[in-house]
Amino acid sequence: MASQGTKRSYEQMETDGERQNATEIRASVGKMIDGIGRFYIQMCTELKLSDYEGRLIQNSLTIERMVLSAFDERRNKYLEEHPSAGKDPKKTGGPIYKRVDRKWMRELVLYDKEEIRRIWRQANNGDDATAGLTHMMIWHSNLNDTTYQRTRALVRTGMDPRMCSLMQGSTLPRRSGAAGAAVKGVGTMVMELIRMIKRGINDRNFWRGENGRKTRSAYERMCNILKGKFQTAAQRAMMDQVRESRNPGNAEIEDLIFLARSALILRGSVAHKSCLPACVYGPAVASGYDFEKEGYSLVGIDPFKLLQNSQVYSLIRPNENPAHKSQLVWMACNSAAFEDLRVLSFIRGTKVSPRGKLSTRGVQIASNENMDAMESSTLELRSRYWAIRTRSGGNTNQQRASAGQISVQPAFSVQRNLPFDKPTIMAAFTGNTEGRTSDMRAEIIRMMEGAKPEEMSFQGRGVFELSDERAANPIVPSFDMSNEGSYFFGDNAEEYDN
């Protein structure tokens, strides 16, 4: 993207840094990872977990959730003011799984939030270390993106479920800051804005008074975040219109849905970061690795190297396929839920299948599930090659597409044709070009129609051997075009429920 120079890199967003050079960025990201790792080690000690239990991804998720809940100030305040039966607002906890007599047992633990905050700050040299908290939120978000298709949420806001490739980060909490905003897809931002506008339509006082002023500035800020994701002048001009509207209503909703559809071809720039579970960072720190000293990046080879040398386990339900569970977590670790499966298959070195073909449910185990038949197995999170994460949407291309997802959002900077089903997408653009945004709409449609099938995206960008740390010898991959490109292809993934 041309304006790259004016933006802070995501590592800076990730670490609240002012302008830093590459070495400083690597050190501050490393410091953040160190903090998460030290916190995780301490929690495993508190909970008396064995090494194996500490490497269980379900335990990692519970521990991450506990610290996120302990620092969720708004919710904590709300819980104190609106006490609900049987919930102690000062405590947080969740299921911890232990191996007892050759069987997995679930144990519900409860801790004072104050105590968890103390352990977290102690692991982070006394700081609140917001960057580390956001990092864990993005890992949870990436896992949700890989596990669930947001059909219901899309339909509720009037969008087409086939636009799911635009929904990265749709389950990120509001408090995820600049680093969170960077990884949100165009569809996620559109959905947040539509929800806001709908509230304004239904509630006369939404934009009024002292609160209304705050609401208005939040609305304009979200519009600017979305505008910054678009790469064409016409899309940005249309966002200006939406932002400046005196009284946002149905016309703005129409414009936003139009823009979301246009992003299936004229893709937005959305950041991709490899955020790993805390149970990967903990053992690495415990083994003596100093992330701050060595430096770390979320968008280069580092996460690949770390996963190459990590042992992570997962509980497996009786009829689940461990290899499929591994694929789910591998995609989440690489922030690749909406990437082209052919690119992923090449990088991973084994075939990556669409969601609907995987015999696996989510990673988390519900409290009512029976533990008797639970097994555990090693997650295979290694890769054959590594590639640089991208934040450009890439230019655009036609490809055989599917009944489910009709476009992709690249996660890796790797040369390819970008699949999208042009006739299906263009069919949504018939007729409606009147109104105050008509010239911009016409211009956007013209650009979409001009998108050429034979153009290559990320020209000359390749993948790298894991021994090639400096990215000196790019390998331009070859793809098996007979395979499906979309992950949520004609899909039956479970729906995400809060």
Rank of each mutant, 00 (worst) to 15 (best):
L276N: 12
S28W: 07
G37Y: 10
M196T: 04
E455N: 14
L315I: 04
D491A: 15
N334F: 02
R461A: 12
I119F: 15
W330S: 01
S60G: 14
G460H: 02
R106Y: 10
A373L: 02
D255R: 09
Q398L: 03
M238I: 02
R382N: 00
P477A: 06
G394S: 04
K77H: 00
G93A: 07
D439I: 07
A27Q: 00
R204Y: 12
Y385F: 14
V155Y: 04
R118L: 06
L256Y: 05
M189I: 08
E494K: 08
R361P: 14
T424Y: 02
N224H: 00
Y52T: 12
R221M: 12
H272R: 12
D128R: 12
E294V: 02
Q399P: 02
I57Y: 03
L193R: 07
R204H: 12
V329N: 05
R400T: 01
D145C: 10
D340A: 01
M105E: 01
G37T: 12
L328I: 09
E339K: 14
T424Q: 15
E339Q: 06
N319M: 07
L133P: 13
L56P: 09
R117E: 06
R199Y: 14
W120I: 11
S84M: 02
M448E: 02
V414T: 00
N370Q: 00
L110I: 01
A336G: 09
I388Y: 07
R99M: 06
R152G: 15
V280G: 14
D491G: 03
S377C: 01
N368Q: 15
D240V: 12
P477R: 15
R204G: 14
R436T: 01
S217T: 02
S438F: 14
V183S: 15
N202G: 05
N247V: 01
R152Q: 08
P318M: 03
E339C: 13
W207E: 10
T151Q: 06
K214D: 12
A493Q: 13
G126N: 00
E192Y: 04
I444F: 09
V408G: 12
I197Q: 06
S84Q: 01
V343F: 12
T350Y: 09
R175W: 15
A179G: 04
I96R: 14
S402D: 02
E14Q: 14
F458L: 04
Y148C: 15
V29Q: 07
